[in-house]
Design a protein around this nucleic acid. Structure first.
Lengths: 130, 130
DNA sequence: AATGTCAAGGATAAAAATTATTATTTAATG
DNA sequence: CATTAAATAATAATTTTTATCCTTGACATT
C-alpha cells in the first residue's frame, strides 16, 4: 500500500494537507463517494469547500492516481488506482468489494479492437447481508 | 428484435406514442444518451418535455425494459434489455459496441456471493477510428 | 361509441450536482 | 525569505435531475 504522500510526490501535483487527507480517506475506506468523502474531510478541515473536493478528485483522476467506479443506482465512487480488478457491489448494503480477475482464460475479444482499459461489475447480495 | 409495442403490452405500462417513439429511437440507435434521445424525439414530438423523457426512461428501467450503461467520461446511455453482453466503448468517437461474453470459462467468483447481474466494459479505439 | 378511472404528458418550479470565477493563501523553488 | 505558480475557499453560475400540479389520453367496461 503506497502512502499518499508518495503518490503526490511522483506526480506534478503539489502536496497539500487537503490532498493528503483526501487520499488517506479514500485509502482507508477503499471506495468512497464524493459526498461521503466531503463529510469525512470536513471533520479535519471544517473550512474545506465541496468544490475543492470535486476539483481534486478530478485532478487526481486525470493524473491516474484515482479511479472512478460507476455502480448502478448509486453515485460514482473513487478508489486509489492499483492492479486491475473487478468490483462486486452489494445490492442491499451498497458495499463495494474488490475481486481478482483471472486472465488465464481470455475470451476472444481482441477482434473488436485493442483494449486499453476495462471495468467489470458484479451485483448481488454480499455474505454479510444474506 | 421485439417490437416496442409488445415490450409495453407485456408490462403494466400504457402504450403511448411518446413511449413508442422513445423505444423505437433507442432500438434504432442501439445505445443513446438522454440528451440525444430528447433531441431525436423532439423532431417527431416537438412539444415533448425533457422531464417526460427522464420520467419514461426511469419507468422503463424500473420495468426491466431498459438497461443503463455507464461509460467512463460520458453520460449514461440506455439500451433495450436483451441477453447479457459486454460493451466496448471507443475512446475516440464514443461509439458503443456490444460483444458476446463467452461464459464457458468461469473464474471462480461465486465464493463472494450469488451474482444477480453483471456489467463489463472495455475501452479502446475502434477499428473505424484507427 | 360513451363513460370512468387511473396513469401519462406538459409546463414549470425546485432540488441536487457539478463547474466556473475570483480573491486569497500556500507550497515549492532558488 | 522572496518569488511564482498552483491550490484553496467562497460564492456564483450552470447543468442535470426530480417533484409538483394540472390537463390530457389510454384503455377496460359498459
Amino acid at each position: 500500500m503506497k502512502n499518499s504522500q508518495n503518490l503526490l510526490k511522483n506526480s506534478p501535483l503539489k502536496v497539500t494537507p487537503q490532498r493528503l487527507e483526501i487520499l488517506q480517506t479514500i485509502q482507508k475506506n477503499g471506495h468512497i463517494s464524493i459526498d461521503d468523502l466531503y463529510a469525512h474531510i470536513k471533520e479535519k478541515f471544517p473550512s474545506i469547500s465541496l468544490a475543492t473536493v470535486y476539483k481534486n478528485i478530478h485532478t487526481l483522476k486525470d493524473e491516474g492516481i484515482l479511479l472512478e467506479i460507476h455502480p448502478q443506482d448509486a453515485k460514482s465512487h473513487f478508489e486509489i488506482k492499483k492492479e486491475p480488478h473487478g468490483h462486486f457491489i452489494c445490492k442491499k448494503c451498497g458495499k463495494i468489494y474488490d475481486f481478482e480477475i483471472k486472465t488465464s482464460c481470455n475470451p476472444n475479444l481482441s477482434e473488436i479492437s485493442e483494449i486499453d482499459e476495462s471495468e467489470v461489475y458484479l451485483y448481488g447480495v454480499c455474505k454479510e447481508c444474506q
